[in-house]
Amino acid sequence: MCNLYTERLSAAEVAAHFGVANPIQSNAGEEVYPGTPGMVVREEEGARVMQSMTWGFPLRLKGMSPTAKPKPVNNIADLGKPMWKGLAAKPRWRCLMPLTAFAEAEGPKGAKTRTWFNVKGEPIFAWAGLWRISDEWGPVYSGVMTDANEAIQPVHDRMPVLLHAGEYDRWLNGSFDDAIAFQSRVFPPDLIETTRTDELWVRRKAPPSEGLALS
Rank of each mutant, 00 (worst) to 15 (best):
N74A: 14
A213L: 14
M53N: 05
G174Q: 02
P23N: 12
P70E: 09
A77I: 09
D157P: 02
E106V: 07
F57P: 05
G129R: 01
A151N: 06
F182H: 10
P37D: 11
S26W: 06
D135K: 02
F176T: 09
I180Y: 08
T67F: 14
E122N: 13
G86E: 15
M97F: 06
Q25W: 08
V32P: 01
M97D: 00
P207C: 00
V140P: 00
P91W: 15
M159N: 03
I180G: 03
L214Q: 11
D169H: 06
E106T: 01
F182E: 08
A179S: 13
S52Y: 02
L212R: 13
R196H: 14
D177N: 07
G29I: 04
K81I: 04
F125Y: 00
N149W: 13
R48C: 02
W116R: 11
K90H: 06
M64K: 12
L214N: 12
L99I: 15
L96P: 11
T100A: 03
Q51L: 04
V49F: 05
A28R: 09
E31L: 08
G35D: 13
A16G: 12
G166H: 13
G107C: 06
D198E: 15
H164F: 06
E7A: 14
D178R: 10
A151C: 11
P66R: 14
V161A: 01
P37H: 02
K109G: 02
F18T: 10
R204W: 15
A126R: 04
T113E: 09
R203S: 04
N3H: 12
C95I: 03
I180Q: 06
R8C: 05
V20P: 05
S26E: 08
A77V: 12
D190P: 13
L79F: 10
H17N: 05
R42H: 05
P66Y: 09
M53L: 08
P70V: 08
N75F: 07
F18G: 12
N27H: 14
F18P: 04
L9N: 05
G80H: 11
M97R: 04
S52H: 02
S26P: 09
A206N: 08
R114E: 05
G38F: 05
D169K: 02
L87R: 13
V155Y: 15
N149A: 13
Q51D: 02
S209V: 06
R132Y: 05
D147C: 11
D178G: 04
R204G: 07
A126I: 00
H164C: 00
A165C: 01
E104G: 10
P23F: 11
I24H: 02
F182N: 08
V40I: 11
E122M: 05
